[in-house]
Design a protein around this nucleic acid. Sequence first.
DNA 1: TTAAGTGTTGCTCT
DNA 2: AAGAGCAACACTTA
Length: 267
Amino acid sequence: MPELPDVEIFSRLVRNHCRGHVITKATVLDPGIIEGVSGRALDQRLRGRRIEASRRHGKYLFIELNGGGAVAMHFGTNGSLRFTAEGEADPPYTRLRLNFARGTGLAYLNPRRIGRVSLCESPDAFIAHLDLGPDALDSAFDLRAFSAILKESKPGIKAVLMDQMLIAGIGNIYSDEILFQARINPDTPANRLDTKRVAQLFSAMHDTLETAILCGAGSEQGAERLPKGFLIPQRRKGGHCPGCGTSLATGKTGGRSSYFCPQCQPH
DNA sequence: TTAAGTGTTGCTCT
DNA sequence: AAGAGCAACACTTA
């Protein structure tokens, strides 16, 4: 679930509610989600640090601290972030909590415990180390750069959109949505898309991701607030194309299920 | 009731 | 060597 739009919402939550706050304590409720440091070391390194900024690259969130360094978060399959008020109990599945003065806090939730939190010297170094591709919404990542990547990729376009080393931020759900909006079949080899379709796809990628952010993806009601014409609310067994009403088709790529309209997205 | 499906990443296998 | 398959996990649906 947490793909680029969802993580963007989390990033804004940190920016709006946590920026400027000093961490008084880091409470590790589940050491399993922390990578590279012990719970004790994490607490020691975070105590007294102030949150300066929040930024996102692909599906990763970076909480930047004064004096350098950042907390890097990945949300796996169903993680999320919640700002907690004074006296508020930890939401279910809270794995880590950053405590601020006056009793407020930031809770990292992760029911399935897939996903992780770590410390890094700098987001840029972290991104380089993981060899992540450009963020899908980075303004420097233009049609020209997008086109160059597709031209050199022969796998199906869906697999290419989801490859974090090529383009960062798009997962199983939004790749289906983007391809539906662009009316392109998920199995089309990326390097076989003509110039016009590549431009349509690039535009659909931007529109879809930006619209999802505007609709508050990541929040509980996110999916329900998506505009008419989106595939996601119908993306299930027995779902129908929001455009033509045709029963959605399903496919499998690398163990991931894809949903698409056989009418609007023909081969 | 047991079994399959879900979502992301990283590893193994071919 | 690219591509498939699976493990990690907890929960829901068939």
